[in-house]
Computed example of a mutant assay.
Amino acid sequence: MNARTRLLLILMSVVGLVWMADAGYRNLIEGPAADRERELDRLTRQVAETQDSIIKTSKAADVLAVLEQFSLPYDPELARAAYQDWLLGLVQQAEMTGASVDASQPAPVKIKDRDSKRQKEIYVRYNYSLRARGNLQQVTKFLYLFYRSGHLHKISSISLNPVGGGRSVDMSLAVEAIGLSRCERKGELSPYAATRLTHDPFQDYLTIARRNLFSRGGDSVLAKTTVTAVTVSSDGVAEAWISLPDNETSVLRRGQSVETEAHVIEVVDVLDRQVLLDVDGQVITVRAGETLAEATSSG
């Protein structure tokens, strides 16, 4: 064996030793270290997911506790009767007439329990149909009272059919309410008020009823409504004399109003031979002897 061959063998041996050392380092040190890092990452993700699940569960429990405060009672028959009476009372508060409420059978909603694998009731659904008659202001008041109440309920559908030339409407509602099985009240409805509405005072919603969209002759009413005179009463208060389409005359002072077939007319101020009127939320100046239609077009 010559010197060159021995040198090649030595180099090959050195290369083999280096490769074996590198492979051993990877298998004995780098491999386990990488496995430990992967396992640590997996455990970290699992802990984070568990923490998120605990937070979500806590939040869900808090939300559920709040919903239970607004739920219908847990006894289905008592809940159905109590809510039906409440709807009728709401119609009376709104001063509507001809009220009738029909209630369907309570419908329990169940899910499969995670542990026992059995069906478990979580809430009961109640469906009602309500009919009543009133003007737009009374309908607005009913809806205002409905959405201010603290119950788990909603209006699924509503229809308004004008009667009497648009002075009144027949209101038909489909209402759905929910009673949670964990509610602690047996037959009493929730005493709490809700915060669903953007504005709290009912007066903020009267603009909905000021312009009667169901009236057949909205513009003709303004053309037949005239400020006939501006006078001062015996006690020194300025008054506006307003002739209405039905040939009646209303004598109004500041802040007073009159309701026509299609409009609500309120006296904002009474000046010398002219009156400031709020007609459906629009303030116009009407001179004595001028119709509201003329004042609206000129203004």
Rank of each mutant, 00 (worst) to 15 (best):
M1P: 09
N2L: 11
R6T: 05
L7T: 06
I10F: 14
L11N: 09
V14M: 01
M20V: 15
A23F: 14
Y25I: 08
Y25T: 06
P32T: 08
P32L: 07
D35Y: 13
R36N: 13
R38P: 09
E39Y: 12
E39C: 07
T44W: 13
E49V: 12
D52N: 08
I54Y: 14
I54R: 15
A60L: 10
A61L: 13
D62S: 12
V63F: 10
L64P: 11
L64K: 14
A65V: 03
Q69M: 15
S71R: 00
S71H: 02
Y74Q: 06
Y74K: 06
D75L: 04
R80T: 02
R80C: 03
A82H: 03
W86P: 01
G89R: 03
V91W: 00
Q92H: 10
Q93Y: 03
Q93W: 02
E95P: 08
E95Q: 14
E95V: 09
D102P: 08
V109R: 04
K110L: 14
I111T: 13
I111W: 11
K112N: 09
K112H: 09
K112W: 08
R118W: 09
I122Q: 11
Y123S: 10
Y123H: 10
Y123P: 06
Y128W: 02
R131P: 02
R133E: 15
Q137P: 00
K141T: 09
K141S: 11
K141D: 11
F142M: 11
R148Q: 06
G150S: 01
H151E: 10
H151W: 07
K154C: 08
I155Q: 06
S159T: 07
P162T: 05
V163G: 04
G165N: 04
R167H: 13
A177S: 01
A177L: 05
I178M: 00
G179M: 00
G179C: 01
R185S: 01
R185H: 03
E188L: 09
Y192K: 10
T198W: 09
D200W: 06
F202N: 07
F202E: 07
F202C: 07
F202W: 09
Q203T: 14
R210F: 12
F214V: 03
R216Q: 13
G218L: 14
V221P: 06
L222V: 01
T225E: 02
T226S: 00
T226E: 08
T228D: 10
V230K: 07
V230P: 05
S234W: 12
A238R: 08
A240G: 01
I242E: 01
S243T: 10
P245T: 02
D246P: 02
N247T: 13
E248C: 07
S250E: 15
S250P: 12
G255I: 00
S257R: 06
E259I: 04
E261W: 08
A262V: 00
A262H: 03
A262Q: 02
H263D: 00
H263G: 00
I265D: 01
E266H: 07
E266W: 05
D269H: 08
V270F: 02
V270L: 04
R273I: 11
Q274V: 03
D278E: 15
V283Y: 10
V283A: 13
R287A: 09
A288M: 10
G289E: 00
E290A: 00
E290Q: 05
A295W: 02
S297T: 15
